[in-house]
């Protein structure tokens, strides 16, 4: 059964940016794309467990701040070494001015 969690206000995230969201002992990264769509992935890089929220969002990629590995945050796909393992992704929706993620 879908478990929608209220994560943040829509305006908490700048366009083409990311924030960290911790919930129930887990950490997530929530993105706002240049075309104003929200996405959510696991918050830690699959290479060395670095918080992706400190990284750089460019178009639809997130770059890890430690080793510059890249993921497509829409699909979680690992795009550039040293990342090889894809990120988990989670559905999002906006209700009013709130961003919800499905865990």
């Amino acid at each position: 059964m879908a478990n929608w969690i209220d994560a943040c206000a829509a305006e908490d995230i700048d366009e083409e940016d990311v924030i960290r969201f911790d919930y129930d002992g887990r950490t997530f990264a929530i993105y706002r794309s240049p075309d104003n769509v929200y996405f959510c992935t696991d918050g830690l890089c699959t290479h060395e467990q670095i918080h992706l929220a400190d990284g750089l969002v460019m178009d639809h990629t997130i770059e890890c701040p430690k080793h510059n590995g890249q993921f497509d945050y829409r699909t979680g796909k690992a795009m550039r070494a040293p990342v090889c393992v894809n990120l988990g992704t989670y559905a999002t929706k906006v209700e009013g001015d709130r961003v919800l993620i499905e865990i």
Binding site: H47, E48, K66, H67, A81, P82
Partner: peptide, 13 residues
């Protein structure tokens, strides 16, 4: 270029 990408990642870690 493959070997050293990983080597340098370790250098930064």
């Amino acid at each position: 270029p493959v070997t050293w990408r990983w080597s340098h990642a370790r250098h930064h870690t």
